[in-house]
Design a protein around this nucleic acid. Structure first.
Length: 900
RNA sequence: AGGCCCGUAGCUCAGUUGGUUAGAGCGCUACCUUGACACGGUAGAGGUCUGGGGUUCGAGUCCCCACGGGCCUACCA
């Protein structure tokens, strides 16, 4: 048997590259002909999470855990790889880089620009790119697979054309959010809202042919250059006489009408509003109602344009300053007040968005949303956790039309052609040869591309060969589960549901599991652009991939978590602990075999299946206990994974492995393994190996590399390929009779209590930790005494005693130090008597605690209402505990009196 | 402005339908270079579960209010 493992001591080093965990071919390949259900899991396109290292990793971590678990239970899992299409942030970076070199990207031409984008992606060291590089030749996910392939592009076009034919896609001129850095319009979802402290400027507009002024309040003085009216509320008597007259727009000296419109709030500011249709959504509406001119005073990149007169060429915020100064100089600035304003920020560039009028493509959402709402209402699609359902409904019921077009070059171009002659717009699957209306050949494709999320939204079916009824499509659609972060519920999940239902008539997936996200120590979302993310590759290098994954699993509960290195250190320690436990097994097995008996039969599967083994007709108590704990752990891990409670699953494996297996079981069976009684030793080995093997399997989804490595080092049956392809421990009827396990657990637990009590005394007495001492134990229960007798060796060893005298008579109170439970008293007599004061304090404190517990129980049990209404098992349990606690209390009080 | 979530030990977080003295990791204290493991062991200290009401036999858990924090949605100059 290979014992290499005993030499090395670096669990991190056996772990392969981080990227490996999601390209394990064997794991992720699904076979449609395989027996058992197929779980397919849709992976978010990398563009979705590429900027969120941790969110991205949580997706993959959880998917991988479930995949391994499913696989080990005999189910198949299909893993749909992501595709990187057109992200706005990438383009923004390249646009800016070019601008820094004095190049306007539009001068480069589309093709050249896209080359630069790819070049940057390759060089930038983005996580996806780095993974691709690391995977290299070991994976066929070449770059082409990460771009929108011709097949996928065809689907996107098909969907767009169909929606257009159904009248769900239209083109309109509207006021929309424009990002002056990304140089494109943004959908509502791509705009972040933030409250900031701003100011309200009160500006005096002279009324023509009078000496009056009309004072308007504004938060954005620079837009006044585009004013085309001043509006007041029609019912506002203060201004009624001015309606119909004209005002002079200061700085521009343009005469603009004073109009009445109900939009104006009489209470706000002065009750008079400047109307800038080209730069404000409300004003835009007013402008349309009153047929006002729309004067755009800015350029694409947020500077003032020729329409801004003297301010042309200035940055919008510089212009604001200058305008305020100029107004002040003219005496037209009445006052300035503080005012909190809600501003919109571009999600990617974080610049303040500019509302601007432009003609864009839109998709009508109401008709798409209704069936999608119904599907979730009916429970056909389950959203986990529950509260996210409400958010989904909330958003879907108030859904607004989706702005589809983007003024970018990287992405899927809109399949629409503009006739240069008659201005007709033709939406078609292929470029038309001539205009369908006038026959002109002067056709040009729409320069815009589609929102990234449009093609992402088609993911569940576009990747499976739709619209053809392919085998993939019929097998894997709908898919069973989608895992992703909650932050893209609207961006992506909701749209997949809507588009999936609309085009296939079926839901795209049955369950959506939304996980939390990991934040920085300041509580910020980790972000590549802000540089606040952690580098997973670096962290993995330092602590190991398994430690990282275990940490994420333990962390992945409902609420967001702040990243601290504590946790990953603790996971690393755990990995190390297991490594050392394995080392213990191998080193000792070598010793054992060196002394004669060979244990090759440990490799046989049935040896493990039959565990635990009996010695002299009965399974040793410690094994009964350990295997009961194992059974319980198996059950809870399976249950937790079934319910996506990753942290609970990870937590119970941790507890079992460290707290039960290492701390107690290994310690307890140590001498048995080297017992002169060969039968006893063989039984111990079999039980130990079988339990360790099961524990490794339980842990495998959370620490795949370490467990895989150790599993191969364990004696395995001929032809065993991988722990990941072997079986996962199934919940089983606990090996004893029903209900019996609890008794066993309690029995062993009381032995543990004896040991802990004795150690306790030793620590309090400050005994030399290496010195063996004699102790006495009293128990009134003969069965209990018998059990202790049978397990005397273990107790004596673990409590470091020279002997333990078991008595059926109560112990004398004199001398030494004593601990008690209801079941037993235990005492170490020692010449250096305990510090009486310290001992009294301890006993008093314990008495107080007990008294509190007893009082609360007595009160409850004495309450007739409680007795009649509480379930019987609660009452019975409480009574039993109360009886025990009373005995304990009595003992403690005696002890206190004894101490004087 | 509306909606959702959170407030539990010094720190980061668990706590499944309400049920017997509220848990973990890290940190802290004391002791231990014990042949699996100092990335370890043993034993400890540390919480009136943000505050106030209410429902209940019983509340960290359910309801209401307040305070504090976060997130999402929203065209008020």
């Amino acid at each position: 048997m290979a014992r290499e493992i005993a030499k090395a001591y670096e669990p991190q080093q056996i772990e392969p590259r981080w990227a490996d965990f999601w390209v394990k071919e064997e794991l992720f390949k699904a076979d449609p002909n395989a027996p058992g259900p197929v779980f397919s899991i849709v992976i978010p396109p990398p563009n979705v999470t590429g900027s969120l290292h941790i969110g991205h990793m949580l997706d993959h971590t959880e998917i991988d855990i479930l995949t391994r678990w499913h696989r080990m239970r005999g189910y198949n899992t299909l893993y749909l790889p992501g595709t990187d299409h057109a992200s706005i942030s990438t383009q923004r970076v390249v646009v800016k880089q070019l601008a820094d070199q004095g190049i306007n990207y539009r001068d480069l031409g589309r093709e050249e620009f896209l080359k630069r984008v790819w070049k940057w992606k390759e060089e930038s060291g983005g996580i996806i790119t780095r993974q691709m590089k690391q995977i290299g030749e070991s994976c066929d996910w070449s770059r082409e697979k990460f771009t929108l392939s011709p097949e996928l592009s065809a689907v996107v076009t098909e969907v767009f054309v169909r929606l257009h034919e159904e009248g769900l896609i239209y083109r309109e001129n509207r006021l929309l959010n424009w990002c002056p850095v990304c140089l494109t319009v943004l959908s509502d979802l791509e705009v972040l809202h933030e409250e900031r402290q701003g100011q309200l400027w009160y500006i005096k507009y002279p009324v023509v042919e009078t000496r009056d002024f009309l004072v308007v309040a504004t938060t954005r003085p620079e837009t006044m250059l585009g004013d085309t009216a001043v509006a007041v509320n029609p019912e506002d008597e203060r201004y009624a006489h001015l309606v119909g007259k004209k005002a002079v727009l200061p700085l521009m000296n343009r005469e603009i009408p004073i109009i009445a419109d109900p939009m104006v709030d009489r209470e706000f500011g002065t009750g008079a509003v400047k109307i800038t249709p080209a730069h404000d959504p409300n004003d835009f509406e007013v402008g349309r109602r009153h047929k006002l001119a729309e004067i755009d005073v800015m350029t694409d990149d947020g500077k003032m344009n020729a329409a801004a007169g003297a301010y042309a060429g200035m940055d919008r915020f510089e212009a604001r300053k200058k305008i305020v100064e100029d107004l002040k100089a003219l005496g037209l600035l009445e006052k300035i007040t503080e005012h909190t304003i809600a501003i919109g920020l571009c999600e990617r560039s974080k610049t303040i968005v500019e509302p601007r009028a432009s003609t864009q493509w839109f998709c009508r959402m109401k008709p798409l949303a209704e069936p999608a709402i119904a599907a979730v209402e009916r429970g056909e699609i389950q959203i986990i956790p529950d509260n996210r359902r409400e958010e989904y409904f909330n958003w879907m019921r108030n859904i607004r039309d989706w702005t589809l077009s983007r003024q970018l070059w990287w992405g899927h171009r809109i399949p629409a052609w503009h006739c240069g002659n008659c201005k007709e717009i033709i939406v078609a699957r292929e470029a038309p040869a001539k205009c369908t209306k006038c026959g002109s050949a002067k056709l040009e494709q729409d320069p815009d591309v589609l929102d990234t999320w449009f093609s992402s939204g088609l993911w569940p079916f576009s990747t499976l060969g739709w619209p053809a009824e392919t085998a993939d499509f019929t097998t894997y659609y709908p898919t069973s589960l989608l895992i992703t972060g909650y932050e893209i519920l609207f961006f992506w999940v909701a749209r997949m549901i809507m588009l999936g239902l609309h085009f296939t008539g079926k839901i795209p997936f049955r369950t959506v599991y939304l996980h939390s996200i990991v934040r920085t120590p300041d509580g910020e979302k980790m972000s590549k652009s802000k540089g606040t993310g952690i580098d997973p590759i670096d962290v993995n290098r330092r602590y190991g991939t398994d430690a990282m994954r275990f940490t994420l699993a333990v962390t992945a509960s409902v609420s967001d978590v702040i990243w601290t290195e504590d946790r990953i250190q603790s996971s690393r320690n755990f990995a190390n602990k297991i490594w050392n436990a394995a080392r213990f097994l191998f080193v000792n097995l070598d010793k054992f075999e060196a002394s004669g008996t060979q244990l090759e039969e440990l490799a046989a599967t049935e040896i493990r299946a039959k565990a635990p083994y009996a010695y002299q007709a009965s399974v040793p108590l410690v094994d009964q206990w350990l295997y009961s704990r194992l059974a319980i752990t198996i059950e809870s891990v399976n249950e937790a994974l079934k319910n996506y409670r990753f942290h609970e699953a990870a937590q119970s494996v941790y507890q079992f492995f460290w707290g039960d297996f290492c701390d107690w079981y290994i310690e307890w069976v140590k001498p048995e393994l080297q017992s002169a009684d060969r039968e006893r030793a063989v039984v111990a080995w079999r039980n130990l190996f079988a339990a360790f093997d099961d524990a490794l399997r339980l842990l495998h989804p959370f620490m795949p590399f370490l467990t895989e490595e150790l599993w191969h080092q364990l004696p395995q049956p001929e032809g065993a390929k991988s722990i990941a392809l072997d079986t996962f421990p199934k919940p089983r009827p606990h090996w004893g009779e029903a209900g019996k396990d609890v008794g066993m657990m309690e029995q062993f637990h009381s032995l543990q209590e004896i040991i802990v009590s004795l150690r306790n005394i030793r620590a309090d007495m400050k005994l030399d930790p290496k010195k063996r001492v004699a102790a006495e134990l009293y128990s009134w229960d003969q069965l209990h005494r018998g059990k202790i007798e049978r397990n005397l060796d273990g107790i004596v060893r673990l409590a470091l005693l020279s002997e333990l005298k078991i008595s059926s008579e109560p112990l004398e109170q004199a001398g030494g130090s004593m601990r008690s439970t209801a079941e037993f008293d235990v005492r170490i007599a020692y010449s250096d008597v305990v510090d009486v004061k310290v001992e009294k304090t301890r006993v008093k404190k314990e008495i107080e605690g007990l008294q509190r517990a007893i009082a609360s129980k007595e009160q409850q049990l004495g309450n007739e209402a409680f007795r009649s209404r509480a379930p019987e098992e609660i009452i019975k349990g409480m009574e039993a505990t109360l009886a025990e606690q009373r005995v304990e209390l009595q003992k403690l009080q005696d002890r206190l009196t004894q101490l004087g």
